[in-house]
């Protein structure tokens, strides 16, 4: 009888373990940012030494990713300058001129590719853009 009681005492507290693991899962689910889906993490951004990182990004911002070879995408969906212009024009009609356009170009991307994005922005009637860089501050 004493032996049985000792074996029962030796059991791992499974319910506490599950509690801890569930807490960890909840943490990861809450902190898993949906933003990662919008930005193309394969792009190696240019580095800026003196500008602070943006903490709260504008949810209305249209982020355009421009790869080194000039291919562009929005939320990892490939797009063309003409498509981009249409998207921005429809956004401008809906939201006005206040929403920002963020260009996430790779550090080695030639300016001609960035200029294509800027040209689409201008043609859609917008004149302000933000160029994204990796903050080292």
């Amino acid at each position: 009888m004493a032996k049985i009681r000792q074996e029962e005492d030796m059991k791992t507290p499974v319910s506490s373990l599950i509690d801890v693991v569930f807490l960890l899962i909840i943490f990861f689910v809450v902190t898993a940012s949906m933003e990662e889906e919008i930005i193309d993490t394969t792009i190696s951004l240019a580095q800026a030494e003196n500008v602070e990182a943006v903490e709260n990004k504008d949810p209305l911002a249209v982020t355009v990713n421009v790869k080194e070879n000039g291919k562009m995408n929005i939320a990892t969906i490939p797009t063309t300058p003409r498509n981009l212009q249409q998207i921005l024009t429809s956004q401008r009609v809906r939201l006005g001129n206040s929403f920002p356009v963020v260009i996430r170009a790779a550090d080695k991307t030639r300016f001609m590719h960035v200029d294509r994005v800027m040209d689409s922005v201008k043609k859609s009637g917008l004149y302000k853009v933000k160029i994204s860089a990796l903050s080292e501050k």
């Binding site: 940012s33 951004l45 500008v51 990182a53 853009v129 994204s132 860089a133």
Partner: peptide, 14 residues
């Protein structure tokens, strides 16, 4: 889980 990229935004006018 991916690490958060500290991005800076440099505003320019066209």
């Amino acid at each position: 889980q991916k690490e958060i990229i500290p991005e800076a935004h440099l505003a320019v006018n066209l």
